[in-house]
Amino acid sequence: MESKLYLYPVWLRIWHIINAVLFLVLIATGLSLQYASVDYSFIDFEIAVSTHNIAGVAITIAYFMFVFGNLFTKNGKFYKIKRKGFFSDLFTQIKYYSYGIFVHQKTPFPVTAKRKFNPLQKVSYVGAMYFLFPIMILSGLALIFPEFIVPNVFGFSGIHLTGLVHIISGFGLSIFLCIHLYFCTIGKTPTSNFKSMIDGYH
């Protein structure tokens, strides 16, 4: 029998579930704010504003938990991208997902104790967590304290620009979430990866 790999430590799983719940709250309230209407609002505007702000601050605190966890535990090394063979590995993985998977080829980068993520996962996780997430947090905090935003950027409202950055990065992370959820069904069974995130074993 194949031995199970313990890849998801407790702190990571706690952060993951907190992050997931808060992110869903932020998407729901964010969409409700962006598409607010006099006749019909998904969530009442005032409630949506305060919930979005509270969830935003909470997810920022949780984000630091994720960053420090990766800085001070071995989990951080899984996110390191090696330059050597970067594009060819990425292409191999893309080829697998777009063809190989349908003809029952073996996954080119199986999960091991040293390799938790395949090259595509690695790039998308790093992009989401270390690129889009900080942009999201910074622009969100700026919108909570708009007095610190530069009022005019080349004739364009600084607050508006910050709002656009916040919305675009939020949209990017929402798309990431959709793809992330779908790819989680590509495990031994469609639910095995979800179970891994609960019990920690892959």
Binding site: L33, Q34, F156, H160, T162, L164, F171, S174
Partner: peptide, 28 residues
């Protein structure tokens, strides 16, 4: 309003709206 001011809920960029629907639709 879109050019100089920002009001949550009131500022909607036509191109971004279309782009987001297209990208989201294609992803699904």
């Amino acid at each position: 309003i879109l050019t100089d001011h920002y009001i949550i809920g009131a500022n909607r960029n036509y191109y971004l709206n279309v782009a987001s629907i297209v990208i989201f639709g294609l992803t699904l």
